[in-house]
């Protein structure tokens, strides 16, 4: 029987975003095909994996996911080093929880100082994340951009309400950004169009906002698939940015994840790997075991 496998070629590529210090520059995106379709296209960069750290001791983490970091959670610098030295993290995501206006409400200046310390000590690609309070994030991320000038960080979340200030500072000080729009491909596109009037498109990663297995998973899964396909199939230039799926907090908030170590690790790893299959280019995860499992699964080609 003669059989010709139905291979498909696309004429555009996902934009390649390079971030991190020169010695450890991390590239994501760049593929001209669907996720893991090595059989019909080029995927020059495997998905990026960042391990999450906080600038304060986590308050509500399950003991299951606190345990691997128990000895370092009071010191973000040591925490960062442990992720890299012990758990082999290639990238980190520092959450500036201390700046939460509803919480400790630390100043932008203090947070930026901590971000600088962590960035210097880590020496790996670093995402610096606010608290999703858009006004405060604008202050904080602008200060971080300045303090870490030239550090080529990935700053986020940048949203409709604060993008002019943050993107301006990011551009001035040599950082990339994460543009966040909630669960709607049209909003993702709108924000990209607005940003690209003054910001280079190949310095943008998009975040359609994530969710956990059993808690909205299917919405995130399909939004990621659709954004990728608007880009690849429809050649929409404003939809060709690499995609972030930040699954850490959502997964470990699920009650099922807190029931046992095995179930927790799989709750996060299955959510993460599913979103990679949908088209995410960068994941943020919390547990060292889910980090290792995902990496080994996607690197076996």
């Amino acid at each position: 029987m003669s059989y010709e496998p139905p291979l498909e070629k696309y004429t555009v590529s996902i934009r390649e975003v390079a971030w991190g210090p020169a010695a450890k520059l991390k590239k994501i995106g760049g593929e001209n095909t669907l996720p893991f379709h090595y059989f019909e296209g080029a995927l020059p960069n495997p998905a990026g994996l960042a391990m999450e750290i906080l600038d304060v001791r986590p308050e509500s983490w399950s003991p299951i996911v606190l345990e691997p970091f128990e000895d370092v959670v009071s010191d973000p610098v040591r925490w960062a080093r442990k992720c890299i030295d012990v758990y082999g993290a290639e990238a980190l995501c520092l959450r500036l929880v201390s700046t939460d206006p509803m919480g400790m409400n630390k100043s932008a200046g203090e947070a930026a100082e901590m971000a600088k310390k962590v960035a210097d000590a880590a020496g790996v690609p670093l995402i610096v994340w606010g608290t999703e309070a858009e006004e405060k994030d604008a202050e904080v991320l602008v200060e971080v951009a300045k303090a870490c000038s030239g550090g080529n960080l990935l700053l986020g979340p940048v949203v409709k309400g604060n993008y002019p200030d943050v993107s301006k500072a990011a551009l001035e000080h040599g950082h990339a950004i994460v543009a966040q729009a909630s669960m709607d491909a049209n909003l993702t596109k709108e924000l990209n169009i607005a940003l690209c009037k003054s910001f280079p498109p190949d310095r943008i990663v998009v975040d359609p906002t994530s969710s956990a297995l059993g808690y909205g998973f299917e919405y995130t899964y399909s939004i990621i698939e659709r954004i990728k396909q608007f880009g690849l199939f429809d050649k929409d230039k404003m939809m060709l940015m690499p995609i972030l799926a930040d699954v850490a907090a959502d997964c470990w908030r699920a009650k099922e994840a807190k029931e046992s170590k095995e179930q927790g690790i799989l709750w996060e790893a299955i959510t993460g790997i599913s979103f990679l299959l949908a088209g995410a280019n960068l994941l943020v995860v919390r547990h060292p075991e889910s980090y290792r499992l995902i990496r080994e699964m996607i690197m076996e080609c």
Binding site: L213, F217, E218, E256, Q263, L266, I270, S274
Partner: peptide
């Protein structure tokens, strides 16, 4: 047949097959 391994898989299947 370990429930800790099966439950996440079954929930993922349920989510993927939910009618959008």
């Amino acid at each position: 047949v370990d429930e800790r391994f099966l439950l996440p898989v079954l929930v993922q299947r349920f989510n993927i097959y939910t009618d959008p």
